[in-house]
Every structure is written in structure tokens, then in C-alpha cells.
Simulated scan of single mutants.
Amino acid sequence: MEACVDLVAADEWLNLSEAAGILGVHPSTVRLWADKGEIPAHRTAGGHRRFRRAEIETWASARREARQPVGHVIVQNALGRTRLQMAEGRLRDQAWYARLDEARRLEFRESGRRLLGALMRYLGDDEAALAEAAALGHEYQRLGRSAGLSLGETVRLFQFFADFLYDSVLDVYQASGLRAAREWAQMHRRVTAFTNTVLIGLVDAQPAPPPGVR
């Protein structure tokens, strides 16, 4: 969709050739994208096509990101969120985190890395990764029990991490603007299926109480 050029600094506007230079494509390709409404474009009062530099740079960045396997982008986003939470001290505010010694924290981090790797494969249509998700649920339960966490605390630990994945799906969807909503809905369903499998595996691995104990 093309809009009329408003009054802004002249160096913020690009002509067809300048926009093509930033994008690394032929000007005719940029013209085609603009005609199809695939790239932000504007018109001067005289009818000439112009492009806002900031919009072109943002569009180019999103296009490069969209070329990456989407599972990789989501996982990297989740890792960034985890590091931010640790840097801001929010992780240490969690009661269950305070009960973990450094050795247990390292074990959970390693399990988290394996979980992200399995998720990336699952988002890449490797259905076998779903079986690994169930096994990782068992691993989370074992680690939580060995650390003296209750089942509820271990579930909260996993959900704290899973929230990063859900937020990452939303972040990447909003940032790209280049993928069909149906594709992203399917991606969200797969992330949900994966995390649900881990959670069910975690609960299923909980030892049954001794006979006579409720």
C-alpha cells in the first residue's frame, strides 16, 4: 500500500534505486514489491514513488530474520529472555529457585538446553523430538525431586521457562510481519503440544504414594 509523502527531512526519503541498493536487489524488484504492497512505499505530490529509510531498513531486517528457520529464531528469542530475567534478578525472586544449590541450577540449565534443542527439531517437523520431550519431562521431575522440590514447585519451574517460549512465538510473529497468520497459528500449536508433552511427562513420572497414603 502506498501513502502520500509527508514533510520530513529529505535524507529520510529514498528513491527507487537507493532503496534497491539497501535491499541488495534490482530496482525492478523493488518496484514489483511496491506494486504488490509487499514493501512500504509512498508517493510524492507529483506521483513519484519514494521510500522512507527507516521503514526499508526495518523491512530488510525482518526479511533476513524470516529467512532463518523459524524454530531457531524462537529458541534464540527465548534464550535472550532467559538471560534478561537472570540479569534483572527476577529468577532469584522465585521461591523454588532459591532452594536450588549451584549444582542443581547447572543441571536444570543443561536440561533446558536439551529441551530447546528438541523443540527446535520439533518445529522443524522432526516428530521424533516429541518422544524426547516426554523423556525430558521425566528428567525435570527427577531433578526437582532430588532437589527437594514438591511436584507443584517443579511444575512452576517448568512453566516459568515455558512462558518464555510462548512470549517468543508472539515476539517473532509481531516482528516479522511476513508470514501468514495460519502458519503462525500452526507454530503456536506445535509449541503448545511440545510443552504439554513435557508437562505430562513430568507429572506421569511422579512416584505413586505408598499403599494407604493419600
Rank of each mutant, 00 (worst) to 15 (best):
F194R: 10
Y122A: 11
R121C: 07
D11Y: 00
R114N: 06
A128V: 13
I56P: 04
R63C: 08
R31C: 09
L151Q: 03
L178H: 04
D35R: 14
R81D: 11
Q141F: 08
L79Y: 13
G24P: 07
P69E: 10
E102L: 10
L115S: 01
Q159T: 01
A41S: 15
L202Y: 09
L130I: 03
R105Q: 03
L100E: 14
F160Q: 09
E102Y: 03
G37I: 12
V155G: 00
D11W: 02
G137W: 03
V5E: 09
V30W: 13
Q174G: 05
S150K: 02
A20R: 04
G201D: 02
T82H: 12
A133G: 04
V70M: 10
W96G: 03
I56G: 04
L143S: 01
L119E: 09
E132K: 00
V169R: 03
L16S: 12
A87D: 02
A78W: 01
A19R: 07
L7C: 06
G117A: 03
M120F: 08
A78S: 15
L23Q: 03
L7W: 08
H138G: 02
D167R: 15
R83V: 00
T192A: 14
G89P: 05
L106V: 02
C4R: 06
G152A: 05
M120W: 12
A118G: 14
L91V: 13
A175R: 15
D101C: 00
G37V: 12
S168R: 10
V155T: 01
V8H: 04
M120H: 14
A66C: 11
M1C: 10
A62R: 15
